[in-house]
Structure formats: C-alpha cells, structure tokens
Design a protein around this nucleic acid. Structure first.
Lengths: 230, 230
DNA sequence: TCGGCATACTTTGTATACAGTGCATCCACG
DNA sequence: CGTGGATGCACTGTATACAAAGTATGCCGA
C-alpha cells in the first residue's frame, strides 16, 4: 500500500518508485544501494536519485552507511521500539476518533466503513490469505487514524508501518498470526465498539493493548523460530 | 538547541545551517525560499541546497508550495494536532522511563540530572528569562525521552518540538506562561516523582496532562490576545 | 608466502549548464 | 479604461562533468 498523504515531494516518480522497491521487499533489508545503480535502473540521472534517497532516509527506510546507503533493517530492539511508538500513537488516534464520535463529528457511514473493513480483514485471515490480510489489517488501523483528523499523527503512523513492514516481512507476520485470528477479530470489534460508543479512554486502552499483544505474539514467534532451529 | 541524533544526513553543513536559520526564527514562518537565494547566501551550489530542502520538508519545517518551498507555518488547528501528538509521545516516553526505573535500569545519576534540570528551568522562569526557560524546559522534557531508550520516539519528539517552536515563537510561549510558573514546576516535580517511584501509569498520566494543560493555557493566551486587540 | 605500499577504481559530494514551466508584466485591441 | 494574449523572466527539474576520498587490488620485496 505505502499510502502517504501530505508532502508533494513524495509524489516525485523517482521517490515513489524507489520507495515501492523497498516496501515491496524487492530491495531487501540490509541491501546496499549505490546511486549509479539506481540511476541506471530508473533511467534518470543521479540528481533525482540522490534526492529520493535523502527523503527516504528521513522516512527511515534507508540509512546512511560508511559507503552510501542501505535499506533499513531494524534489529529486534528497534522493532520493539517501533511497536511501542505505534501503540502510543494508535492509542492517541483511537482516543481522538472516539472523542469525535462523542461530539457527533463522525458520520455513521464512517463507522460502517470501519466495521466493513474489520470484517474483510477477518475473512481474509480465515481464508488463509495472510499477505492480503496483513494489508487489509493495516488499512483498518489506518482508517481509525484518518478519522482522528490529526495529520501529524497519521503521517507518523504511516512511517512506522512502513518501517515495520520492511523489517518484519519474513521473520514475523506469519506463524502465530493464524492462531490469533479470533482474538484479533474480537479486539477489532471491541475497539470499534468503544469508538462507536464515544468512549475515548476505553478506545485508547484497547488500541494500545491490541498493538502490544501483537508485539508479544510476534515475539513469541521469533523466539520460537530461533529456538526451533537449534 | 535543535538537537537531532540519528541520521548523518542531518550533519551536513548545508542542512544544519538552513535548519538553524529556520529554527532560530531568522527565516520566519511563511517565508518563501528560493534555491538560488540560499545557494548564494551559503556560498554553495544549488545541489546541496536542494537536498537540504527536501530533508527539511521531510522534517516538516518547510513545505512545498506552488513555486518552490516556504517555511512551515502551522495554523491553530495544526498546532493543536502537534500538541496532542506530543502529549501521546511524552506519555509513552515517561511511561517507558518509569518502567526502566522500576526494572533498575536507570542510574541514580540520571534521576539527579532530571531533578537538577527541573530546578534550573524553574529558576530561569522565576527570574523572568523566558527565552532561556523555554529552552531549558525543552531540555528537561527531552531528557525524559532520552531515558526512555526509544530512538524512534525521541526522533519524532524532536521533530514535533521543532515544528511547534517555529510556529509559536511569538504567538504563544509568553504571556500566561509566567502565571503558570508554580504549576509547571509542581507538575515537573510530580512527574519526576512518578518516574523515581517506578510508576509507569502515573508517569504517563502526568506527562500527558502536563502537555495538554500547556496547550490549554496557550490557547487561552491566544484567544485573549485576539480578543484584546479588538 | 606474507606483509606493506602504491596505484587504480568505485562511489559520493559539488558545481554548472541546459531544458521546461508557470507567472507576471506589458502592450494591443475592444 | 479594461481585458485578453503574447512575450520575457524567474525558478525549478534534470543531466553531466569534475573533484575528492576511501577501498580494494596487485605488485614487489623481505
């Protein structure tokens, strides 16, 4: 998906293409990137490539290394940090959205879209289409953030998501996710309910717990994975 | 201060200088910037200037406009959004710091530095040196974020602070701040206490309330200011 | 055979030239 | 006097050339 609203810089074709290469996983984490290589691949000069790389560095998708840049590869600690930040920000957006609902600023249609999106995510997960399910799950969470009507928080969440997606493509998001299917669906429903009832504190609490539970589950996976190979 | 850790891109002299021009207020919010003007002023070519501008756009300190870029000027709604995000992130970092304290990962020296910094801020405020007080206040809050040991959250808070500083240089941060002196000091002390006692929930609650109270106070100021000119 | 040094190459940083585009200004015409 | 269009200008976007720096490689000597 890699949805980014705001800054027109991010509409630049070179930036967009390169970003897609990274987010899609074609350029794997840790892969080193040279400007020349990219300028040849994208058939442009080094100038726009350089700019794209700088912006992507700001996005946290590539990081400068001794020689040029490399696709970011968050280690376990960094992934933890990302999840905690995501938890904090999603608690905030859920709270703000619930607050808007309480103040009658949310359309019934919006709530309906939320429920529909949650159902779609559920179905895909049950059907076993994990790749698409993860995508739609992200879309669900992003919907809530959009409804919070806070562009800064939304932008930060987009960045966090991208970083997590890139760094956890293969390691996580698989194994235990299936087992947690019903729990995820239930947590989503509870969250929607709290928003629909206009209960900011409860919504914040649920959103936060939901993210942290996901982190804990993935962790168990990772650990299990590591130990399993011993 | 404009403290930025991470990305080496941000160590580039052109970027650093331009950033300082903006954060210091020499380039006022809304001011349009042309690449040529900057390249002449900084005595470099347009190439590094362009890159710096792109990165700054990512930082949210300049925004692309019809023709080139302009220094960001957050309107009242955007400032609100920034404060809410700051509240969410500081609640998180305060919580994480308190958690570390509970787990014995925080050195007594760190807590002492925190108390010292709070006192310094207090003194400056009482002495009426508001500019320096604001600076040291920021340093205090940043200290907590550093102790949280979460680089992503710290980076985001730095961005938010910069944006707020640029956009509220004259409008806020003055008038009522004086009246709130004792309250600010007291809130800081309570926050430190919660951290020292290793009470994550309480620390998060206090940090959040502190930021939102500041927002509310500034708002009152702004409204008063507007009404006062009628 | 191994170590050290010199050289060549890869790659980034910077400058400059050129192309394209939108905006403003000015003139002509209604 | 007002309005529309054309022309010139200012600025951004892109390419290319050049400089600097660090790394790898190969050769020579011990």
């Amino acid at each position: 998906m890699s949805t980014v609203t705001e800054h027109p810089v991010r509409a630049e074709p070179t930036y967009t293409t390169l970003r897609e290469l990274i987010v899609s996983g074609e350029y794997a984490p840790g892969r080193r990137i040279t400007e020349l290589e990219l300028s040849e691949r994208l058939a442009v000069s080094r100038t726009p490539v350089r700019e794209a790389l700088r912006v992507l560095a700001g996005d946290g998708l590539v990081r400068p290394e001794k020689r040029g840049v490399a696709v970011v590869a968050l280690d376990e600690k960094a992934v933890h940090e990302a999840y905690w930040v995501r938890a904090g920000l999603e608690a905030l957006t859920a709270e703000l959205t619930a607050l808007r609902q309480r103040q009658g600023e949310l359309s019934p249609a919006a709530l309906h879209r939320l429920r529909t999106q949650a159902e779609r995510t559920d179905e895909l997960t049950e059907r076993g289409d994990l790749a698409e399910a993860v995508e739609q799950n992200r879309a669900f969470h992003r919907m809530i953030a959009e409804l919070a009507d806070n562009a800064i928080a939304l932008g930060m969440l987009d960045r966090i998501w991208d970083q997590i997606v890139v760094s956890t493509r293969e390691s996580l998001h698989g194994q235990r996710y299936g087992e947690r299917t019903e729990q995820v669906g239930e947590e989503h429903r509870q969250l929607i309910e709290a928003i629909a009832e206009g209960e900011p504190d409860e919504a914040a609490r649920l959103a936060r717990a939901h993210v942290l539970t996901t982190l804990a589950t993935n962790n168990a996976d990772a650990r299990q994975g590591v130990e399993g190979t011993r």
